[in-house]
């Protein structure tokens, strides 16, 4: 089965949403997915932060328009995309150990239930090297 690897560096709502949408497309194509959550992304996956994320990556003046567009089109929350994708295909979500520590997350339980484990960056680079599709978001 083909595999997609995402290096999810961003913790911004627009990019997190994009990662969820793209993962949905990969799941529809029966691809396995591995998401390696890097520096800023780890903050979004913290239990106390996942529902609070609302910053855009580059265009803060478009925040209201962005959220209005999501509501109007009944777009799921970023983590709901990932939850649904996990029910369709094989998905592993791994938090970079260093990234977790930066935000105070030392163990898997510090993150939302979608997270499978804590990993080292070597595993990410190896996975990216062997993936059929590698995205850095």
């Amino acid at each position: 089965m083909a595999k997609m690897v995402i290096g999810l560096f961003s913790g911004s709502i627009d990019r997190l949403t994009g990662a969820g949408v793209i993962s949905s497309g990969a799941a529809a194509l029966d691809m396995d997915i591995e998401i390696y959550v890097l520096i800023m992304g780890a903050r979004a996956f913290m239990k106390e932060n996942s529902e609070k994320i609302n910053e855009l990556s580059e265009t803060p003046h478009l925040q209201d328009q962005f959220f209005n567009g999501l509501d109007k089109n009944k777009v799921k929350k970023w983590h709901e995309f990932l939850k649904d994708v996990k029910e369709i295909t094989n998905v592993k979500i791994l938090i970079c150990g260093l990234a977790g520590k930066i935000w105070g997350g030392e163990k898997t339980d510090d993150f939302i239930d979608l997270v499978d484990d804590i990993c080292g960056v070597g595993e990410y680079v190896d996975a990216a090297t062997n993936a059929d599709l590698h995205l850095f978001i």
């Binding site: 949408v21 949905s24 497309g25 799941a27 529809a28 089109n73 009944k74 777009v75 649904d84 369709i88």
Partner: peptide, 14 residues
């Protein structure tokens, strides 16, 4: 109907 991309595709897949 009423769902945005990727809703219809995922519905087909499921």
């Amino acid at each position: 109907r009423g769902t945005a991309c990727p809703g219809p595709l995922l519905a087909a897949k499921q």
